[in-house]
Design a protein around this nucleic acid. Structure first.
Lengths: 199, 199, 199, 199
DNA sequence: TATGAATGAGATTTCATTCAT
DNA sequence: AATGAATGAAATCTCATTCAT
């Protein structure tokens, strides 16, 4: 990475923090400059404007989540138990991503939607991508005969993701995060498997 | 209702529209004034400032939803079929609220969260209230022996609500809203009953 | 006095109070309306505008003071003792006017000067008139041989008035107004007679 | 002095002029900006708001006057003549301060009182300080046996200051300022010494 | 005469962005 | 590359005054 890119990332990290604390609109370029420890004017050497910065931060966040998600593809599972265990691991993995960096969801779910249409579209698209991924899981489950074949694929994928996000949000609000994570994992897996598994 | 209250509501309706179109931050008081057909200055006779107005609109929305939700309490159901039908009606009812007035969810789910901590807290609280309501349904189902007694009550209620909201969001994005509504109703009821019913 | 004039005076009394409490610029027409117990709009039936009202109040105050001052003209005094006693009574009389209604000086000396040039001119003129009056006293004293003939008439009159005003201001700030009044009377009379009397 | 302080002073000087010409309330930030030759917005980099600026200007004025006043302390005087001459020099000195910069008194005596309670308090306090100073003079005169020992110290000090201020005001209104200054000096010294000296 | 809602001009203040150094 | 002062375009909010009833 060249020096300029390094600086860009440095600014993004600082801004990421400030944005999540104060929100997009209440954050002034000066706040970011102070956090980065540089002069205001310099900011504009690295980013076109405030929105450009925010947009790139959202890209970064999405990329990170995507990387985390994609890291464990629907692997091989020969029994429903194995399939369930795989699902558990996936949920765990996702929770980890959100809980480890609680700023992410605040920025992504609360702030970003109201900033700008382009940014919103970006998030929308990433959610679709995320749903694609979940679909793969379900499809795999159906093909292997673990899940009922009459499932509404797309909607169930969205529903599943919504459960993950809700779980992540609630875990973040919980005092005992460890326990909350455990309970939510159970609730989600029970809902998902319990409702979709073949009997 | 006195004249002043009528005017207040008139402004709120106009602002409601403008906020949902342009978002909170991009809406200027003048936009609201123009939409209401009055001079800017008059606004401040009825509201302290933009946030005050927005906050009251959120109150109004929450009250409306609450009224819609509370209107059909968990009624009498003697069989699982009846219980399921009741659930279907409830989901239908909720979808109706959001779809009938798509602005609501845009404002409530996208805009409001990033506006102000007090407003956010308000929404948080209303979601808790909403979860209370869902809990009643589930409890009723357990007591009557339709649902498994080992369900995590609170989390399942939140999860259920998250599914409703996701459904509402997706229906609003769908071209064929009627069909989308049908499919989502099925998905949610299947998930809910399929996973929680006693076998 | 006709009904309209009565109302005008009523408004002036109310405004007089509000102006002295909040100052000219911080007083809104609505404050005056509230104090008078009438509607805002009605104000403009009785006065052209805010400045017009203030100006008339200042006129009223000046007239009142003038009336009080003029009430005891330089009377007959045959000895320096009598002359001194007359002076004492005059000072007493003036203090009474200011102390009895402390609002007067706040309005006249603090507020009015910064409001408008015309109003300022008015006060300036009234001070001149007041100085004329004091001059009469001094002249009388000189003519009767009580005071030194080489006194700078005009300046001494202004100086004397300045002492009165300063005394009034200080008395109003004092806790024990009665005592303060006594002391100031002594100081002023001593200064005036002590310095100007023939030895 | 650093660059920022220099700019602050520059703005204060410009504002000082504008305030004295138009008065506090009629002066807009833009007027000050124009006078300084800068953009409006820049003003807020150096001052919180108009009142903050005005308050600091008043501080500056008071400090200047105080410096001028304190510069000649009650010196050594062995005879009443010397004491009188010293007094004359002090009065001269004070007149010089006010006449040299007529804006001062306009701002201090007319404008400042009606602006804000804090500012008014500031002036009140400085007048007290000023009276302290005059008291020293009088005390010195008493101790040396030039003045009567039964003088009301505090009140006489206030009275003396009131004379100075009245003189300053009148001199500024006079056409022939030089002559006015001479006359007023005589009047004040005559009043002060004539009335308080031991005979 | 009375009401009080409505108007609209204007002042303050903020801050993203530019620019001279 | 870096600084931070300077710009200027909004946006909010206030309130004297007018107007319809």
């Amino acid at each position: 990475m060249d020096k300029a890119s390094k600086k860009r990332v440095e600014i993004m990290e600082a801004a990421y923090k400030v944005f999540s604390e104060k929100g997009y609109h209440s954050t002034r370029i000066e706040d970011i400059a102070v956090e980065t420890g540089m002069a205001q004017g310099l900011f504009y050497r690295y980013f076109d404007n405030k929105l450009d910065l925010f947009s790139q931060i959202i890209d970064m966040i999405i990329a990170r989540i995507a990387a985390g998600v994609m890291s464990d593809a629907p692997g091989s599972s020969d029994t429903l138990e194995e399939y369930t265990e795989q699902l558990e691991r996936a949920v765990d993995n996702l929770f980890e991503i959100f809980v480890e960096d609680p700023i992410i969801s605040k920025l992504l779910f609360y702030e970003a939607r109201s900033v700008d249409d382009t940014v919103n579209k970006k998030i929308q698209d990433s959610l679709d991508l995320f749903a694609d991924f979940s679909s793969q899981y379900i499809k795999d489950g159906i093909e292997k005969g673990f899940l009922r074949p009459d499932i509404e694929l797309r909607e169930t994928a969205y529903a599943f993701n919504a459960l993950i996000f809700e779980g992540a949000r609630r875990i973040m609000l919980a005092k005992d995060k460890k326990k909350a994570k455990k309970v939510w994992k159970k609730v989600i897996v029970d809902l998902a498997i319990g409702a979709t598994a073949r009997h």
